[in-house]
Nucleic acid binder design. Structure first.
Length: 590
RNA sequence: GGAGCUGUCGUCUAGUGGUUUAGGACACAUGCCUGUCACGCAUGAGAUCGCGGGUUCAAAUCCCGCCAGCUCCGCCA
């Protein structure tokens, strides 16, 4: 079918006879002379059809159109100097075609490959097979392959086993919603697609496999986002007889290996580490983007006895006054400052106060006349303010003040173009709380998952004040995106049961949902821990694209529909009957 | 569940109440062209203006509802 690839043809081949196969790109018909671009995964080469040299292929080429699949044979020929095309690698030569065969004709494609960047995404998804022919998608999917390949090689070299776990698994209603699969053999019963291989991974550790990994497809029936699909891929690993540091070290090795192998980039080891609390205080988020500065600073101490009512009230109620300093207020118009205040309100804060430091180090602000001289001097000193600085202040409940300024911080970085875009900035976030209070459900929920081991220094509070307990969990954050999370797991059945109890799962529920797991814990469970990396997100960042749909061959839309195949779709009554399912009428619902 | 943005030939778009027989570019078709590579030139075909209702003498344009896509909040143990 072919002796060579389109992309490898260059002047070294001049004079050689080659046979190439691929898709036709553009066609330039000059009447007595036709040029076709022939494309395969490797690249593009120009074909020439000259009736004066070879009549038959010329006649066939007359009828060839875009996206036809053809095979040609001919001689690689040097181009004359003035017809060299420097923009493609094969541009110094072309193929003078002696023989052409059309494998397959093609309808006029709905969009031109070179127009891809302008075409609406749903058109591209409907004709994904054409979209995937574009250079960008070819590169993204290839990048993905290279990442899984590097991952396997790395883990294999470190003594990990790749072990598959069931896709038809058990529903565990804690956490994300499950996708359910009815069982024909067991009417009225359901499998669930796994949200993650978590429990199977742990059980493999109980079984003595020591280290395992999996490129695991996971399923969660939750709403979609640019970085969330209902099915996605995790790099999942688990290790026996380890502490958090061991897992982190292995993972740093993995990232370093992947970036070296795939992008030929060195990443600096070890990664930075930041405690969850520090991250919240300084960056207002548990997934800080450290490619820029703008740290959040606490200035509560300056306003304990303030005349300013909002500050005083907030502090009286255990809130905080927090601030960010921006270099130059000239970057902001009045309108933009107003917009910042709006943004702050949108994120849940009562408001936002701005202060400009003018050339004479005077503080200009809507609240300046309420600021005492001590407070002014205190601010200048505490924040090392310089002329032309802009100070943004949020006073609110501690967590609201942090999170609001966290969002403002990201907003400012984008506006002021402070983000070092070519950097890959990894950071570990650790020392998470074990639990958090779910205001909506009025109950305690795990921050990570209920199999996470409590940190020994704070485990004493488990019975009295569980919200004070920290966990042995760690997240890995890349450029402000959470790309993975893991933990040291509980390996003691009594502790595990205690955690379930704190989470208010009753005995019966524990038995039904996790009975298999607590039983497994009773027969000799070693200390163990692991992590799962959101592979799609990692590749999205490596490819510098805005959505994981760009690195998944066949993704779903925001309403979880596949534009290519039109799934999900109805099934026949017979199919439903076989699995004992009755569809409720729309009216039957509330 | 909620908020915002978008929806006009195959594709990208112009059009904010009558100038519209909805304009352009690319793609497509036909013809001409032996050096193009975003080929060129000429001619042509191609649009239920997302769907439904309303206001108006008159709606792509204004209003209401719905649908679809995207972004975000909630949600994602």
């Amino acid at each position: 079918m072919r002796t060579n690839l389109c992309g490898e043809i260059n002047k070294e081949f001049a004079g050689k006879e080659v046979t190439l196969s691929g898709w036709v790109g553009r066609r330039r018909d000059h009447g007595k002379l036709i040029f076709l671009d022939l494309r395969d995964f490797s690249g593009v080469v120009q074909l020439v059809f000259n009736p004066g040299i070879n009549k038959n292929p010329y006649t066939t080429a007359k009828d060839v159109r875009s996206e036809y699949v053809i095979k040609i044979s001919g001689k690689v020929t040097n181009r004359s100097k003035d017809t060299i095309n420097p923009s493609i690698p094969s541009g110094e030569v072309e193929i003078v075609v002696k023989d052409i065969k059309i494998f397959s004709k093609a309808k006029t494609p709905p969009f031109l490959l070179e127009d891809r960047s302008k075409v609406e995404e749903n058109t591209r998804l409907k004709y994904r097979y054409i979209d995937l022919r574009t250079r960008q998608m070819q590169e993204n999917i290839r990048l993905r392959h290279n990442v899984t390949d590097a991952t396997r090689k790395y883990f294999n070299s470190k003594g990990f086993l790749e072990i598959e776990t069931p896709i038809m698994a058990k529903s565990t209603p804690e956490g994300a919603r499950d996708f359910l699969v009815p069982s024909r053999m067991n009417p009225g019963k359901f499998y669930a697609l796994p949200q993650s291989p978590q429990l199977f991974k742990q059980i493999l550790m109980f079984s003595g496999f020591d280290r395992c990994y999996q490129i695991a497809r996971c399923f969660r029936d939750e709403d979609l986002r640019a970085d969330r699909q209902p099915e996605f891929t995790q790099i999942d690993m688990e290790m026996t007889f380890v502490e958090a540091d061991d897992v982190m070290e292995i993972m740093e090795g993995l990232f370093s290996h992947i970036f070296k192998e795939v992008l030929n980039k060195e990443v600096k080891l070890p990664f930075k580490r930041i405690r969850w609390k520090d991250s919240m205080e300084t960056y207002g988020t548990d997934k800080p983007d450290l490619r820029f500065g703008l740290p959040i600073k606490d200035i509560s101490g300056l306003f304990r006895n303030s005349e300013i009512k909002i500050f005083k009230d907030v502090l009286k109620n255990n809130g905080a006054v927090k601030s960010i300093v921006v270099n130059d207020y000239l970057d902001f118009t009045r309108k933009e400052l107003g917009h910042l205040v709006e943004t702050a309100r949108k994120f849940g804060a009562g408001g936002l106060v701005w202060i400009k430091i003018d050339e004479n180090m005077n503080l200009q602000s809507p609240i300046s006349k309420f600021l005492s001289d001590t407070e002014k001097e205190g601010l200048i000193k505490a924040l090392s303010l310089k002329e032309k600085n802009l100070l943004l202040i949020v006073a609110d409940k501690f967590i609201t003040a942090c999170q609001t300024l966290g969002m403002i911080r990201k907003h400012l970085a984008r506006k002021l173009k402070l983000i070092r875009a070519d950097e890959f900035n990894f950071v570990w976030v650790y020392d998470f709380p074990l639990f958090e209070w779910d205001e909506k459900e009025k109950r305690i929920t795990p921050v990570h998952h209920p199999f996470t081991k409590p940190d020994e220094n704070t485990a004493g509070y488990l019975d009295s004040e569980p919200l004070k307990v920290n966990s042995m969990a760690y997240d890995i954050v890349l450029n402000g995106v959470e790309i993975g999370g893991g933990s040291i797991r509980i390996n003691d059945v009594n502790l595990q049961k205690k955690i379930f109890k704190i989470l208010k799962l009753d005995e019966k529920k524990i038995r039904e949902n996790f009975g298999f797991f607590t039983r497994a814990l009773e027969y000799g469970a070693p200390p163990h821990g692991g992590i799962a990396i959101g592979m799609d997100r990692l590749i999205m960042l490596m490819a510098k694209v805005k959505s994981i749909r760009e690195v998944i061959a066949f993704p779903k839309t925001q309403s979880a529909v596949c534009m290519l195949t039109d799934s999900p779709s109805s099934v026949t009554d017979e199919q439903l009957k076989e699995v004992s399912i009755d569809i409720m009428e729309e009216d039957g619902q509330e």
